[in-house]
């Protein structure tokens, strides 16, 4: 299964993306339960989830149709391991881009049954790609 990681923010405000192929077993036994476990958590310092920190990174991690937002607040834990693996995966495509314009073409709509927006309040409108939506509060997790 493909895991896509998109990093935004930082001093430069440059969005970068990495992807990683993991086995279905690993995705289903490790990453999907971890992402789903974070659903519904109300992060006290959202939006932004950054507290008084400025110029830090926020990661959007998409595991199939399940996505989670991870704030760079703490450096250790499983999400950090996943991010490091994706960044070092030489075979995986690595792209970087500026913010996607609001007119970005949406991908095929996911099945509602498969769509889990674990880091926020999912609505039908949010099934559109992140960059295609109007600015709204992200609710990133800190790296665990």
């Amino acid at each position: 299964m493909k895991i896509e990681i998109t990093r935004s923010g930082g001093f430069g405000g440059i969005t970068r993306s990495w992807s990683l192929e993991v086995s279905a077993t690993e995705a289903e036994q490790r990453w999907l339960p971890l992402a789903r476990a974070e659903g519904g958590i109300d992060h006290a310092d959202a939006p932004g989830g950054t507290g008084e920190q400025r110029d830090r990174f926020t990661y959007r991690i998409a595991i199939g149709y399940t996505e989670v937002y991870v704030f760079e607040g703490r450096p250790d834990g499983p999400w950090r391991e996943l991010i490091d693996r994706a960044r070092s995966a030489k075979a995986a495509p690595s792209t970087a881009s500026a913010a996607t314009p609001p007119a970005a073409a949406p991908p095929p709509a996911p099945s509602p049954a498969d769509h889990h927006r674990t880091a926020g309040d999912a609505t039908p409108e949010e099934a559109a790609p992140e960059e295609a939506r109007d600015a709204g509060p992200g609710k990133p997790r800190e790296l665990l």
Binding site: T58, R133, A135
Partner: peptide, 21 residues
Amino acid sequence: PQPATMADFVDTTSDNGGVHI
């Protein structure tokens, strides 16, 4: 990606709503 004027304001959820943009 930075705009110079409101005509090119970028709506995005990335980057805390485009704070660096």
